[in-house]
Design a protein around this nucleic acid. Sequence first.
DNA 1: ATATAGAATCTTTTT
DNA 2: GATTCTATAT
Length: 722
Amino acid sequence: MDVSHILDNLNKPQRDAVSSAPQSLLVLAGAGSGKTRVLVHRIAWLLEVEKTSPFSILSVTFTNKAAKEMRGRIEELLTTPSTGMWVGTFHGLAHRLLRRHYEEAKLPQGFQILDSDDQLSMVRRIQKELSLDTKQWPPRKSQWFINKQKDQGIRSHSMEHKGDYTTRTLIAIYTAYEALCERSGVVDFAELLLRSLELIRDNAHIMQHYQQRFQHILVDEFQDTNELQYAWLQLLAGKKNLVFAVGDDDQSIYGWRGAKIENIQNFAQDFNEVKTVKLEQNYRSTSNILQAANALIANNKHRLGKNLWTEDKVGEPIKLYAAYNENEEATHVATEIQHWLTKGRQRDEIAILYRSNAQSRVFESTFIEKGIPYRVYGGLRFFERAEIKSALAYLRLTTNRDDDASFERSVNFPPRGIGDKTVSMIREYGKQNNLSLWQASKIMLQTNILKARAGNSLQSFITFINNIATEIQPMLLSQQVDFMIQQTKFIEYYSKKEGEEKGKNREENLEELVSAANSFEYRPDNEHANMSFLAAFLAHATLEAGEGENTDDEDCVQMMTMHSSKGLEFPRVFICGMEDGLFPHQNSLNEEGKLEEERRLCYVAITRAREQLTLCYAEQRRMHGSTLYGIPSQFINEIPDELIESIRAISKIKKKPILPIPKKRTANETGYAIGQKVSHSKFGSGTILDNEGAGAAARVQVNFETAGSKWLVLTYANLQKL
DNA sequence: ATATAGAATCTTTTT
DNA sequence: GATTCTATAT
């Protein structure tokens, strides 16, 4: 058997991983070390050398983009078609299981998926019904609590009467929320995973079927799995435990949303792993950039341990630019971009990375002024736009009348005289009698509970939906969507309400929705089993919210958060806002674990760069309306001096001396010892928790009795020793 | 039912 | 400073 097309062009460790005997394997793949390549080639190996049937392969990713890339590259490499192989995201595959076995999963056939916005409005409604003040109980926090429990596999009934008042209240919200979802026939994202886990766990024949079927499970970005996903994988893998996991503990940056870095550390014992392969040769960056990344990440404890190296040249030093303020930071970047362009390079080779989205604003206005085209990642995504969601809500109602979230969204939009009062009456009635809003409305109309005017409006809404549901029955999907948009008179409403121009934009989006429906591929034989064409499209809209922003073909500078840069690469990278408090973020400074995650984020950001990396910080920055004086990020210190070339702003409006980059922490140059009691004019009295820096950069962390703990720059804080 | 003013809040994000 | 939600008035 000629295996050369599978193994050629792979380095030694890559080849080891790809061609290893059937066994569980952990591939520790550093940034830019060719992890997708290894995954894809492994699949080819299994199919062509091990003669595994595509039916017995399950390949899981986190994002649709990764899944799509995986599918594309498998097809490219393979000589035979890979029909029957399951390749998809955790959520997508869980969804598929639930559709196939909706009865065992105790779901209605037409169940719908809630996105986080829908989920939030459901939580809001629950809290209103439970008369919980949104000030005391922020719905977002409740939503977060619910998802956190689900991500740990905990159902509300298993935690009754536990904990203090706060916890008990949150549990009550969780319980009511679960009941509401049940009644509405909807599942949220976390529910997809939890429900499918329970489905497999509690149905012996289903478990047996899938454990037998999936002989090989491959997982991408393993460091991002949460507890539930880990358990899900374990369950599907069964006793055989043939899991091929690819990940990088140094790139774990989603701990704050439940990802457990421990999962990659526990892999060996839980999956009877017999082999670990490290991919450390990097094919992306210059050696200077890699050395900087290696030195930085070496400051983290509890690593599995890896050191990236390259055969590439040393490359240019890392540039460090000290800007006077945030505007000057942006101006400098703009100047550098223009210089880059004069060398015949392109704008889309450049990425500007920052910690928080708000930082993009200054760059945007500077670039507009200088006429530099740019694209900001992470805007509103297509299927999340208000007009799209509203149109979809109508379509969802025709599929499942009990979908309360969609009912609420469409009942008075566009306005048809069903006001807040009427809707709350329906909610109340539904709650009393455990009915969906739709059913409640129907009974209320029959029993004449409502006033004539509201009743008439509600009746015409009910009739409207019923009629449409019948009328669209024979139509093609795109006609159904189009018909719905016509009947609801969205376009007329928007152009009247928001004027020609803005309304025009919405109209275009709605037209885009029709064409999205037109090009949607329906696969009832596998992926979309047990779903109508329309239901499949609706699920697709929620699970794959589509690209953010319309992708213009114009050559643009790319701007994004460091988080969203993961997985991408650019010849030229600027990491901006490198100031303590901004990056690492203020909220991460107090906990070692959080600080390490910030450092990993920095590692991710650095390793995006291929040729040239520039770090920027500003001494002065306007944030939340007031001016802050920052000190350079501690991460700058952690990069060896010899890799860095400093550039200083020659500021005309030089009001303050440029702050020196602080040396490694030296105790008590601040003059404040840890434990010293101090008082502050605004925050009152407190105790010094930590101190660092010297001279103008000296600052201390104070734990105030009433105001909590804060970092203060001594020059401005005016502390009194007590 | 909508418009406006004041208040609160202000990492990171995919599904 | 900017956005987003809430309360209040019209």
